[in-house]
């Protein structure tokens, strides 16, 4: 296996410090700031590259990505409900988390791609946005049906105007309008510091994950197995979809990472309001304490190998 990306070591530092109960905590405002820079960097980078090439047949890809976002929670729900024997709201909530995506994991994958000099399509950040939303909607419908009581307007704002959607799309637009020359002045902050910012973000993620780790076993071996196996299965489905779209090997890897990742920001926030009966600790423990560490340490290199194996065979 290739050498561990140093940013992942920051995650392990946070995890270890948190487990040892060290006096360590990133102030909330700094965590918010750091995650904003990551979202904008990812958006801007995609936007700049989009500005220099035609959008072509992107529409078909957009539809396929949305289909992928709808399909994943529908596959997850029956397994959670009937194999995991989770109550309906919890099964729907976990399904929504795993159908949706983690921008943090995507950021680590981009860093991995840079280290390995892997090229990928510039529109991948757009796919992050497209994959984030549909699964959450599916999860809400799976939990409650299409109920009149659901406050769809308020939820719509929460889902479509969440921080990650606004900043990723905003970054894409700014990058697209301004182009590489126009953005050279902000380049040091958003591109030069990207890895340092990602390292700080992962340090805090390690601390947060350590706080949720105790729950990982409380919910039994099903959840532990779920958090480790499902990302790999979903990543394989992502590879399949990438082949349908004819993505490059790099794009295939990133779509696999996106499909295999689980949301821990947008989905928990929306589902807490939309499906109050679901226990938020179950899905957050799975996505944050099990799947996120798995993906950034083992998953991304593994999906890289899976992609290579698929393309070779």
């Amino acid at each position: 296996m290739s050498q561990l990306d140093p940013v992942v070591l920051f995650f392990l530092l946070g995890l270890g410090a948190g487990l040892a109960r060290a006096e360590l905590k990133l102030p909330t405002a700094i965590y918010e700031f750091v995650s904003m820079i990551l979202l904008l960097s990812i958006g801007l980078k995609g936007g700049i590259q989009l500005s220099s090439q035609p959008l072509g047949t992107l529409l078909v890809d957009v539809v396929l990505v949305i289909l992928l976002g709808l399909l994943l929670p529908l596959l997850a729900f029956p397994v959670l409900r009937f194999v995991g024997r989770l109550p309906r709201p919890d099964a729907a909530s976990v399904a929504a988390h795993y159908g949706s995506v983690s921008v943090g994991t995507f950021a680590v994958a981009i860093s991995y791609a840079a280290v390995q000099s892997i090229e990928y399509e510039p529109f991948m950040p757009l796919f992050v946005v497209l994959l984030e939303v549909p699964a959450i909607l599916v999860g809400i419908v799976l939990a409650r049906g299409i109920s009149r009581r659901t406050r769809w307007r308020a939820l719509g704002r929460e889902i479509f105007l969440g921080k990650s959607v606004v900043l990723l799309l905003g970054g894409l637009l700014i990058g697209w309008i301004a182009g590489p020359q126009g953005l050279s002045s902000v380049e040091p902050l958003f591109f030069g510091l990207f890895k340092g910012v990602l390292a700080l973000f992962l340090l805090e993620m390690g601390l947060i994950a350590s706080a949720h780790l105790t729950g990982a076993l409380r919910y039994g071996f099903f959840l532990l197995g779920w958090g480790l196996v499902v990302p790999v299965v979903f990543a394989a489905i992502g590879i399949g979809f990438a082949q349908l779209m004819g993505l490059s090997p790099g794009g295939t890897l990133l779509l696999a990472v996106l499909a295999g990742s689980a949301s821990y920001i947008a989905a928990p926030a929306t589902l807490r309001v939309a499906v109050p009966e679901a226990n938020p600790a179950i899905s957050l423990t799975a996505s944050l304490a099990i799947t996120f560490p798995f993906n950034i340490i083992v998953g991304i290199p593994l999906y890289h190998r899976m992609t290579e194996a698929w393309l070779a065979g």
Partner: peptide, 11 residues
Amino acid sequence: GKRSLDWEHGG
């Protein structure tokens, strides 16, 4: 359970 501010929506 414990509620801390270190997490965007856990506070």
